[in-house]
């Protein structure tokens, strides 16, 4: 069996990659995708611990996280579409007005 720590390391790497993406990319869609990466990393952790502790609560939580990711993607992409329609840009650092 693979020790749980291995899963933690994979999850960490994914998490950090996601964080880097969120912090450095200018394209909002890629930023959103990086957030999905982060959520995914969290899910790996949850499931790994679920197995580690022989309890399924972790997996149930992972399902909630996926639900949340779906909701976030829907609203986030809706905002992106609305924003793009008004400004014709996708760059995060050009989103500098609080209203339009």
């Amino acid at each position: 069996m693979i020790p749980t720590s291995h899963y933690l390391v994979v999850s960490l790497l994914l998490f950090t990659t996601g964080v880097i993406g969120v912090l450095t990319r200018r394209n909002v869609i890629i930023v959103l995708m990086s957030i999905e990466l982060i959520l995914n990393a969290v899910n790996i952790n949850l499931v790994a611990f679920s197995q580690h502790l022989a309890s399924l609560d972790g997996q149930v939580f992972a399902i909630f996280v996926i639900t949340d990711a779906a909701a976030e993607a829907a609203v986030g992409l809706g905002i992106i579409i609305a924003f793009f329609r008004n400004r014709q840009t996708l760059l995060a650092d050009e989103m500098d007005l609080l209203r339009w």
């Binding site: 880097i20 912090l23 450095t24 990319r25 200018r26 394209n27 869609i29 959103l32 995708m33 993607a73 829907a74 992409l77 992106i80 579409i81 793009f84 014709q88 996708l90 760059l91 995060a92 650092d93």
Partner: peptide, 28 residues
């Protein structure tokens, strides 16, 4: 959904823009 939106807002211009923002090094 992601792919859908990417295709809807597909901009050729976006490919030629700088992809990383100014805080890249700090953030990294």
């Amino acid at each position: 959904l992601f792919v859908f939106v990417i295709m809807l807002v597909n901009l050729d211009v976006a490919l030629h823009q700088v992809q990383f923002n100014r805080q890249t090094w700090v953030a990294g």
